[in-house]
């Protein structure tokens, strides 16, 4: 799937929170294939419908490589990664201490997020955190003390361990170490997997949830509920 970055996304809509009580919200996201961008836009639309002022900022890596090249940087960890899925204490240990690969990113439009009331950060799940999102979290300024929301897309159904915990735990932990607080989460399936594991995920979805993959993908009731809950939690 290809997409063009919509420059209009960066235009703030509505007034900022100063003076009129509206919450000013930044949505920073990295999207490689466009699915996370769709989720970011959906969250943005929901927030706008709740009288928030929303600004988008796209995290763009300096160089976008092929998925094979990106994944190969993590390949040596995969056997151990697989093992941790079945042993919870080992998984926690792994998620606390694994080496998170990062990717150089282009300058952000809002490298200092201090002016925003809430910050939403999203990206795809690449085994754990995607590399550009990891670098963004390492370098973003002004986030200390902020309430944040995290959202992500992944190929398979929302498996608690493989899809959700493997991303939620390290991302939340890093955000909290920086001094911010995660108050909202949205995890939605994109129904797309670049290396082509979708048939496998389809079978897993049927076996585990007795539902087709479409039940969990963007645009579904499941995804819409997830977005609504995300916005509820974010604005509490």
């Amino acid at each position: 799937m290809s997409y063009e970055f919509n420059k209009n996304l960066n235009k703030p809509e509505g007034n900022n929170s100063v003076g009129n009580g509206k919450k000013k919200i930044l949505i920073s996201y990295f999207s490689r294939t466009g699915y996370t961008e769709t989720l970011a836009k959906s969250i943005g639309n929901e927030l706008k419908s709740r009288e928030c002022s929303v600004v988008f900022d796209q995290i763009r890596p300096n160089v976008l490589y092929s998925w094979l090249r990106e994944a190969s940087r993590d390949f040596p960890k995969y056997p151990f990664f697989g093992l941790t899925l079945f042993i919870p204490p080992l998984r926690r240990l792994y998620l606390r201490h694994y080496h998170q690969i990062e990717e150089d990113i282009q300058p952000m439009q809002y490298s200092n997020v201090g002016e925003f009331d809430r910050v939403c950060i999203g990206g795809p799940k690449w085994a754990t955190m995607s590399y550009p999102v990891a670098r963004y979290l390492q370098t973003v300024r002004g986030i200390t003390g902020k309430k944040t929301g995290i959202f992500t897309t992944f190929g398979g159904p929302p498996l608690n361990v493989f899809e959700i915990e493997m991303l939620d735990y390290p991302m939340t932990r890093l955000i909290e170490r920086i001094g911010a607080e995660v108050v909202a989460r949205s995890f939605v399936s994109s129904g797309y997997h670049e290396p082509g594991l979708m048939p496998v995920f389809g079978v897993i979805s049927r076996l585990r949830y007795f539902k087709p993959m479409e039940y969990f993908t963007l645009g579904s009731d499941y995804a819409n509920d997830s977005i609504k809950n995300f916005c509820d939690d974010l604005l509490k």
Binding site: N112, R141, G142, T144, R177, I178, G179
Partner: peptide, 14 residues
Amino acid sequence: TKRIKKYIYDSVIE
């Protein structure tokens, strides 16, 4: 310590 370091650098950059 990392938060202090970050605050120092944020302040320098600003």
